[in-house]
Design a protein around this nucleic acid. Structure first.
Lengths: 236, 236
DNA sequence: CAATTAATTGTCAAATGTACAATTATTAAT
DNA sequence: ATTAATAATTGTACATTTGACAATTAATTG
């Protein structure tokens, strides 16, 4: 007789949660929502949802992300599977956490009003449900790790950006100051940036030249091993 | 009225699978078992098991690992959550993959006979069930990444080991040759090794001095950022 | 004691990292 | 028109690390 299922084993709910990073030119931010159902209705939470039949974890995370931001084809990476038996008090629920990097200028505000979503500065995160605080801690750590060797932070920037903006971003991610001269030398030496003729005149009299990513080199070098940060600090 | 469960959502099985690395002094190896139940009974497989009620993913992996090797307190790290809806043809089953690094000399052979377990050279892995081949590919990649910056490969070695053995290990992990002089200079400069007065006389007339890990420095430096490998290659 | 084998040790040039400040472009005010 | 103010842009010298490369040493064997 053919087996039809694995008998005597317990099944559990599986959800995805998204840690959504954005950068407004000054600060690194996270997109959070107000949870719309019990338990913990009305409290701040990461955007998430249950994995549906026929859906992989990755496509589930993509679906959830599109629901909230309207965006597709964004940078999305699996962070960690959270499986503490009591992380959700109502019923055992595993959560596969993903982190996303989006260009904050492309995100559609109207969608997020439905979820009462808001951008929070990373230094000012409110109290969150379940283990979402821990998820964010790990996401920050992993972003630091990744960005030290791969040009992943460009995913947070618009098509045109300035060197001071880029340095702001790196300084925000690593919560430390960098030397302007050494920073631009290192970044430019990767050959990833193409200088534009236009300047950004906001926020300075002299204006700062715009740069664009060399998309071809970017794709080619993404998995190569560059070094964007001297010492990424103590990271796992 | 209080909610008791999340209604109208589908639950699924969740398992853990362990990619178990060992090093015999010459080659990097993986411990595989012959699957003992249907479907795919009798085929080669990673050691795994279903996550039980009340058990976290990590403790589930520890349990599975102890069942097969008799070992506790081994290096264990979550690799990735595999969730393709059809990865197990019988029933939807998620798998949280962990990779383990064990000292091959400590592992208890008698236990593994129960599971028909065998060590396989990484270059000679047999056909495997489900997505286990992909799990191994990712585990190798992650081990490379990790070992490039953290002294994690010492987990594979016995308490006393020689520099040539250590270099063999690194060369096995990176599938490339390294210069003896540069290798020992780099490794010794970390201050992690304590030279012993004894020599290992196996395999050479002159004999090679044993070294021990400085456990205190090891724990202290583990998350620090050392550089053990010149260029870890193209890795995610 | 000579021959063999593998471990151990050293040097130099090139590349990279680090610390540090003067100059330039633009706008606003006098 | 000149000056003052602001932030962007550019350069240099020194220290450290890396990478390429070969001679010497310790032990065993015939």
């Amino acid at each position: 007789m053919e087996l039809k299922r694995y008998n005597r084993q317990n099944r559990m709910l599986v959800a995805v949660d998204c840690i959504i990073f954005g950068f407004d030119g000054q600060q690194l931010k996270l997109l959070l929502i107000k949870r719309g159902f019990e338990p913990e209705q009305g409290r701040w939470s990461l955007m998430g949802g249950f994995v549906q039949p026929g859906e992989s974890f990755e496509s589930s995370a993509q679906r959830v992300l599109k629901q909230l931001t309207g965006l597709e084809n964004v940078y999305l990476e699996q962070l960690y599977a959270f499986g503490d038996p009591h992380r959700d008090p109502l019923e055992r629920t595993a959560s596969i956490a993903y982190f996303a990097l989006i260009d904050i200028s492309k995100y559609e505000k109207q969608l997020s009003s439905e979820y009462h979503a808001e951008w929070f500065s990373l230094k000012n995160i409110p109290s969150l449900i379940f283990d979402h605080k821990e998820m964010i801690r790990m996401a920050k750590e992993k972003l630091r790790y990744k960005a030290a060797f791969h040009p992943v932070l460009f995913e947070l920037l618009p098509a045109k950006f300035t060197l001071p903006q880029l340095q702001n971003l790196y300084e925000g991610v690593y919560e430390s100051m960098m030397d302007k001269r050494n920073f631009s030398r290192k970044i430019l030496s990767t050959g990833l940036l193409i200088k534009q003729k236009q300047k950004d005149k906001e926020g300075s009299k002299k204006g700062a030249f715009y740069y664009k990513l060399d998309k071809k080199k970017y794709r080619h070098l993404f998995n190569a091993f560059l070094k964007f940060v001297p010492d990424p600090g103590n990271i796992k």
